[in-house]
């Protein structure tokens, strides 16, 4: 990990020296032992802040639609797919963007770590090749990284950046044998009552903080329909029907765009199972339109285009 951090710094140094960037968005160590945090580097003297480890969990592409100028961005597989998606939607000035791609072994799930530590608090974390050594008051635990990855990382099919201008480190092996829709299929098997119960439970947890929406690279609308007051499409409170409709709306709006980066799940403070909504829609889009989001910058996302042979069995004559 140290080597990769060093390699990032060297790449960024070169970019500044060659005047290719005014701003680099990457990760630095966070204020808590298990956290890495997004950082904005504008000066070559600050490049030593940049790090890479298995806690660099945010999707940095979310910042691209909020910043202008010559930007460099550290992009793991899912960040790079989000960038491709944003390119498809004309949200990116590609000429002024340098993608510093980094093959990713998956990000560790903070909640899984918390669970395995029970109530013990981590004070120091050291990352080895495939494990985290976590120390606290009177304990030391070694957790295998592959055991504590986020669910979406465990079934990720694009660990290597799908687009990059600079590549850090060596490509990693893709998880070709994993069925990324296994969870969705299991959910589809459930009765409608069981599925509804799950939906209700998730809706009840939501506090409408919009962390999911704001962490999502594809939620770049200047005015979200949920915020509109003229007309007001949604009730503003945490009444169950409104939280449910909010999540439905968001899922449908990112249909064919969501790259399953998990940013929404990671951001949610209330542990709402947001992935089950989005992954189901992703599966439908894959089956109906043969489209995988964030792969080909030239492809048109299914909701932005149509073909005469598109699936239309739902239209009843």
């Amino acid at each position: 990990m140290e080597n990769l951090s060093k390699e990032i710094r060297e790449a960024v140094k070169k970019l500044f020296e060659e005047d290719k960037v005014d701003l680099v968005i990457g990760f630095e160590n966070g204020s808590l032992p298990l956290k890495a945090t997004p950082c904005f580097i504008r000066n070559i003297d600050d490049i030593d802040r940049l790090v890479w480890n298995s806690r660099c969990e945010n999707n940095l592409a979310v910042y691209l639609t909020k910043n202008k100028g010559k930007i460099g961005i550290v992009a793991k597989g899912c960040d790079s797919r989000a960038i491709v998606g944003l390119m498809q939607e004309n949200q990116i000035d590609r000429e002024n963007l340098v993608i510093i791609g980094i093959p990713c072994g998956g990000m560790v799930d903070q909640k899984k770590i918390e669970k395995s530590l029970q109530e013990k608090e981590p004070l120091e974390v050291k990352e080895n090749h495939d494990s985290l050594v976590i120390k606290g008051n009177g304990f030391e635990e070694t957790l295998k990284i592959s055991d504590i990855l986020y669910d979406n990382c465990m079934s990720c099919k694009h660990r290597n950046p799908v687009i990059h201008d600079v590549l850090i480190g060596e490509p990693v092996e893709e998880q070709d044998d994993v069925d990324e829709f296994a969870g969705v299929k299991a959910f589809e098997e459930k009765s409608s009552d069981e599925r509804w119960d799950h939906f209700v439970k998730q809706g009840e947890k939501c506090i409408r903080c919009y962390a999911c929406r704001n962490a999502c690279p594809f939620c770049f609308c200047e005015e979200c329909s949920v915020d509109s007051s003229q007309p007001q499409w949604f009730g503003k409170s945490i009444a169950l029907s409104d939280t449910q409709v909010f999540h439905l709306m968001r899922s449908f709006h990112i249909a064919g765009r969501c790259v399953d980066c998990g940013a929404c799940v990671r951001a949610c403070p209330m542990d709402v199972d947001l992935r089950f909504f989005n992954k189901k829609i992703e599966k439908d889009v894959r089956e109906l339109f043969s489209h995988e989001a964030g792969i080909d910058p030239e492809a048109a996302p299914p909701l932005n285009t149509y073909n005469t042979d598109d699936y239309d069995d739902f239209i009843k004559s």
């Binding site: 945090t37 950082c39 506090i207 903080c209 919009y210 962490a215």
Partner: peptide, 13 residues
């Protein structure tokens, strides 16, 4: 404010 994504997690918790 630069890295803030503008959600309400901090205020609501």
């Amino acid at each position: 404010h630069e890295k803030c994504i503008g959600c309400g997690t901090c205020t609501y918790l």
